[in-house]
């Protein structure tokens, strides 16, 4: 029942869940983007590799690899653009209070 593809997807779903918890818990927009970084890299990698293992080697696997490549290269660009807009428009990062 627990084959390679489902195992990989379970690992990926664990990272996706952790990222969602981080997006809720962390205090400001800069920290939340770190939580999204886990989704963008490891979560996507494990889930998409698991789906690629599901049917054996077909042409769809090459396309899944293309999706993964696009996401890995261009999601950092999106979060960089968003955060640069935030910083230039006066959003200040949350800083821990000195105790």
């Amino acid at each position: 029942m627990l084959t390679v593809d489902t195992l990989l997807i379970f690992i990926g779903l664990f990272f996706l869940t952790v990222a969602a918890i981080g997006v809720i818990r962390l205090p400001d927009v800069f920290s939340r983007s770190h939580a999204l970084g886990i989704t963008d890299t490891l979560g996507n990698f494990f889930v998409l590799t698991g789906v690629a293992f599901y049917q054996g080697l077909t042409l769809a696997d090459v396309k899944i690899f293309l999706i993964l490549l696009a996401l890995w290269h261009l999601n950092p660009v999106i979060s960089h653009a968003t955060l640069r807009a935030a910083l230039r428009n006066g959003v200040r990062p949350w800083i821990k209070e000195k105790k």
Binding site: F30, T41, P93
Partner: peptide, 26 residues
């Protein structure tokens, strides 16, 4: 360099020029 830093969770590049980067570290 900037893309690798952003891809690594925990650090995000915010500003970039050819000689200096501003990075947010968690």
């Amino acid at each position: 360099l900037g893309n690798s830093i952003t891809l690594t969770p925990g650090t995000v590049t915010i500003e970039v020029s050819s000689s200096k980067l501003v990075i947010h570290a968690l």
